[in-house]
């Protein structure tokens, strides 16, 4: 986990996806081949930091590795460039959550291996409205 996290840290820290140089389609997670035009010429592209909630859930039983964080709110957010991104939604009271709520990215701790292990950071979302 420590190395696979390191490999993707720019993806997680900066919401760094990619973009087709031929048709400008943008992706997060990044793709290997453009889904729209088939081009293999893609360059890294930072995603916009704001969007809106398309759907969400309050997960009350978390996976191994996330113990102590429950409940966690998870949403699928459509960013301002149209790209859909999965992420946790934080600092938001459950009754304030609605489909269509505006959100922005924040930099947060995702989880830690243990009190002696590595800490993994990444993007999450927080509600603006």
């Amino acid at each position: 986990m420590a190395i696979s996290y390191w490999r993707r840290r720019d993806r997680y820290y900066r919401l760094l996806g990619n973009k087709c140089t031929r048709c400008n389609a943008e992706y997060y997670p990044p793709v290997y081949i453009c889904r729209r035009c088939g081009s293999e010429s893609l360059i890294d592209a930072e995603m916009p930091g704001t969007g809106k909630i398309l759907t969400y859930t309050i997960l009350r039983e978390v996976m191994s590795g996330f113990e102590g964080q429950q409940p966690i709110i998870i949403g699928i957010v459509q960013l301002d460039n149209g790209v859909k991104v999965l992420g946790q939604i934080v600092d938001t009271p459950i009754d304030a959550l609605k489909i269509g709520c505006k959100v922005r990215t924040v930099f947060r701790k995702i989880r830690e291996e243990s009190s002696a292990g590595q800490i993994y950071y990444g993007y999450k979302f927080t509600v603006l409205c």
Partner: peptide
């Protein structure tokens, strides 16, 4: 593993989001 599991989204949570979208 890199983009769903990493953020803590279990399989259940994905289907729950689908259920909300479907119902709405």
């Amino acid at each position: 593993a890199e983009y769903t599991q990493f953020i803590g989204a279990s399989f259940l949570s994905l289907n729950a989001m689908l259920a909300r979208l479907y119902s709405e």
